[in-house]
């Protein structure tokens, strides 16, 4: 069941509609009626686990990885995402990391843009044409690639290192960004993700300042978002958070996005990676 949210409606209202559709039959203001709505959503989520449409993206992504593309007509099979050229298994659990050839710390998405440019000859403009999918006729190759590569790390414990000085710096800068209050609403990541057991409307929020919260949150992205009808990556998650924080638009694969990802991914160390997952 998909909640039909009119264009322009925030996901918050969408979540509210979904919640009331499922469990809000009672009008009485009792606390019981309200907490049962949250339980119903949990049941809905459990029922969704079987038949995750993310598998369709994983299959398409594997095809794209192995396909000769771009001006150089090359596949991505020589792309080094940290464990050597073409080694996909377990690679995502070690990202972001420093790459000597680029002399910078990169997450998966920025590394894929790098490989598309250097191995396949794609221009930056072309590789950024449809980063976020928007329906079956506007599919995102990037999201498919992310689904495939991350699926090959399922079960691998998160293991993001900061031994290289640039990695350590990205972690520290990412932490500052996490606490950065700005924009007309004075929001920072910490505003919503700095406390235990809080929720926006009926959407529970992970406390990203604790190990448990970071582990639970980071290991379940990318995810098929039912309300979007799309597989969404961690770059998308950050982009959409900043949009709702009333910030300007986060540039895909930018340093700030990588720094923040380094901070959150490392905080999740030790937990087995469990994505692509499925979320509301």
């Amino acid at each position: 069941m998909r909640t039909f949210v009119a264009p322009g409606m925030g996901t918050l209202l969408g979540a509210a509609l979904l919640a009331t559709a499922l469990g809000g039959a009672a009008v009485a203001p009792a606390l019981l009626a309200q907490s049962s709505a949250v339980d119903e959503i949990a049941k809905y989520r459990a029922a969704l686990q079987d038949g995750n449409p993310a598998e369709l993206w994983e299959a398409r992504g594997e095809g794209i990885w192995k396909q000769k593309r771009g001006p150089k007509q090359a596949t991505l099979e020589q792309c080094d995402i940290g464990l050597g050229p073409g080694v996909v298994k377990g690679a995502y659990a070690r990202l972001p990391r420093y790459f000597a050839d680029a002399d910078r710390v990169m997450d998966l998405e920025s590394r894929l843009l790098w490989c598309m440019a250097t191995l396949q000859g794609f221009s930056d403009a072309d590789s950024r044409k449809q980063l976020f999918g928007n329906g079956n006729d506007r599919k995102s190759d990037m999201e498919a690639l992310v689904a495939y590569v991350t699926s090959e790390s399922r079960g691998t414990p998160m293991n993001v290192g900061i031994a290289h000085p640039k990695e350590a710096e990205m972690y520290r800068v990412g932490e500052r960004i996490f606490y950065f209050r700005g924009g007309p609403h004075d929001f920072g990541c910490v505003t919503c993700h700095g406390d235990d057991a809080k929720r926006i409307r009926l959407q529970e929020l992970p406390n990203l300042t604790t190990k448990e919260g970071a582990q639970k949150a980071y290991t379940t992205w990318p995810a098929y978002r039912v309300s979007q009808g799309e597989l969404r990556s961690f770059q998308w998650r950050l982009y959409d958070c900043f949009r709702q924080q009333r910030f300007p638009e986060l540039i895909f694969g930018s340093d700030a996005s990588i720094a923040l990802t380094t901070f959150l991914a490392r905080n999740a160390n030790g937990a087995p990676f469990d994505a692509p997952a499925i979320k509301r």
Binding site: P53, E55, G135, N136
Partner: peptide, 27 residues
């Protein structure tokens, strides 16, 4: 359209089939 993902498993005299289809399903 994208290919379907189909899994079929038999246990005893019953086969269970699970199919994931790629379709926009616009109302």
């Amino acid at each position: 359209a994208d290919p379907m993902k189909i899994r079929a498993n038999v246990t005893g005299d019953t086969t269970e089939v699970k199919v994931l289809m790629s379709h926009e399903m616009e109302t």
